[in-house]
Amino acid sequence: MRVDVWSDVVCPWCYVGLANLGEALDRFDHEDDVDVVLHSYQLDPGAPRRDDQPLEQRLAEKYGASVGQIRAQQARIVSLGAERGIDFRFDQAIGGNTFDAHRLLHLARARGVQLELKHALGKAYFTDGEPIGEVDTLRRAALSVGLDADEVEAVLTGEAFADDVRSDIAAAQQIGVSGVPFFVVDGRLGVSGAQPPETLLDILDQGWQTQVQAPVPVVAGGGADADACGPDGCEI
């Protein structure tokens, strides 16, 4: 059974959501028969390669909130992240365009280390304060999960997988994804947001018990609305 996940590298709820999926899979009886495929989604496709403006200041300006309000919202996700072993350090985050990161994730998919690279990129941005749009950051993350240096360099200096990234984004629009993370189980059951592990486990069980041979349109799956990052970004 396949689980497709749309997410962005700079989306904190995506990071939490993937951790929740990992916990759900650990409790799923058929974990070894599940293929998790990550798909590209950009919260800010027009972002520069590097944005040195403090994240809390950028969010405060974007949402018309005070820096204090943003910090309070960030504290909530820091707490949730800690429960999942994620060390969110928003005060150190250096923003940037994620298009090249997504291209590398497609290479990683082809080499069987996509989830590993996703986690490495998340740690680089959210914990280590590395500029997520810069080549050096992307190269270090890619090499740390065992990708071939020559292949990585070819991607970073060329246009490989650019069409794949665009196709993922177009597919998200086609099925009505308005916030990430967005999970699709067995091509049929869709659920948005950083759903808790229990909800994701229920969707996995439902998908397994009702598998079909031919793809059908995605429909909203169980679970209440959960935190997500939308087209305007993440108000955290």
Results as ranks from 00 to 15, higher is better:
V219I: 15
V155C: 05
Q173K: 04
Q174I: 08
G193L: 03
D186K: 01
T199V: 15
P217E: 13
G230N: 15
G187H: 08
V212F: 07
A142G: 00
L201R: 07
D128S: 15
T127N: 04
D202M: 04
E153H: 04
E151A: 09
S167G: 06
L143V: 14
Q209H: 08
F182W: 04
L200P: 11
L147P: 00
A162V: 05
V145F: 13
P131Y: 06
V135H: 13
G193C: 07
G230V: 09
I169M: 14
G158H: 01
G122H: 11
K118F: 09
V145K: 12
G176S: 04
V185L: 14
E198T: 06
R188Y: 09
E134Q: 09
P197F: 06
D168A: 04
F161V: 14
D186N: 10
V165F: 02
R188K: 11
L117M: 03
Q174E: 15
D128Q: 15
I203F: 05
T127C: 03
Q173I: 05
A224I: 02
F183T: 01
A172W: 01
G207K: 13
R188C: 03
G222K: 12
R188D: 05
A149C: 13
V185K: 15
Q195G: 02
A160M: 00
S144E: 07
A226H: 06
R166A: 09
D227Y: 15
E153Q: 13
L204K: 10
L117D: 05
T127V: 07
G190K: 07
V155A: 07
G176I: 07
Q173N: 03
S144R: 08
P217L: 14
D150I: 07
A170N: 14
P215G: 00
P181A: 03
D148K: 05
Q174A: 15
K123F: 05
L117I: 00
D136K: 10
D163L: 03
E116K: 12
G129Y: 10
V219G: 14
V152R: 14
L147H: 05
P217C: 14
A228Y: 12
E116S: 11
I203H: 01
G176A: 02
A160R: 15
F182A: 04
E151F: 00
P215F: 09
T199M: 01
A141R: 04
L201A: 10
L115Q: 15
